[in-house]
Amino acid sequence: MSSVAVIDYGMGNLHSIAKALQHADPQTHVQISADANVIRNADRVVFPGVGAMRDCMQALHDLHLVEVIQQVAQHKPFLGICLGMQALLSDSEENGGINCLNLFPGHVRRFADHLCDEQGQPLKIPHMGWNRVKQKPHPLWRNIAQDSRFYFVHSYYANPDHEQDSIASTDYPRPFTCALARDNVFAVQFHPEKSQAVGLQLLQNFLCWDGTS
């Protein structure tokens, strides 16, 4: 039986992601944990999170999880979600500028104020709701149609330095990177655990992924 650790560092509600992982594969052993040993011993690691980046990085430092995350992200299938994706970049504009984990060179930016859509309607921030995801080839998109809608809720977005790290994009109103991938690491801005059938498919794909692209 394979296992997946959901990193618990106090940033948001982890029950949804744990329940969705269990639903996606009832055979997988799902553990919510802040324990370095549990995280190191799991076959796969999920790094979720909602809230502010300053609190996120502070919690990771306080719980001594920075090094653990950097280690497991070297070789285990690893899935970052929402704030757990943004934290993988070099730094974020949020809270006046915060250094992040630097697994993907690049910056986290805030959506500009007063953006408008093609009809001139003002766009709301947070970007909240179901939006289309334009995917590039990757095993985690298996059985998920191009341009499927996933559920988003965020005010900041990842802007990676290297185009090849971006594995999907979404328009709001301009395209932004909504998924990152390199080797065994995959990360998404949207919430697969709240994206109904397509989200569960992505989690199922992750739970049988060996970390090679």
Binding site: N13, H15, S16, K19, H23, E193, K194, S195, Q196, G199
Partner: peptide
């Protein structure tokens, strides 16, 4: 509901304290 329906769920009515919020979020 949260263990079988995987879309966003909102709960309103009688939310008065931070503890009320925490209970609802923990429930899913």
């Amino acid at each position: 509901v949260a263990s079988e329906v995987f879309i966003p769920l909102t709960v309103g009515g009688g939310i008065r304290t931070l503890e009320d919020i925490r209970r609802m979020l923990n429930a899913g």
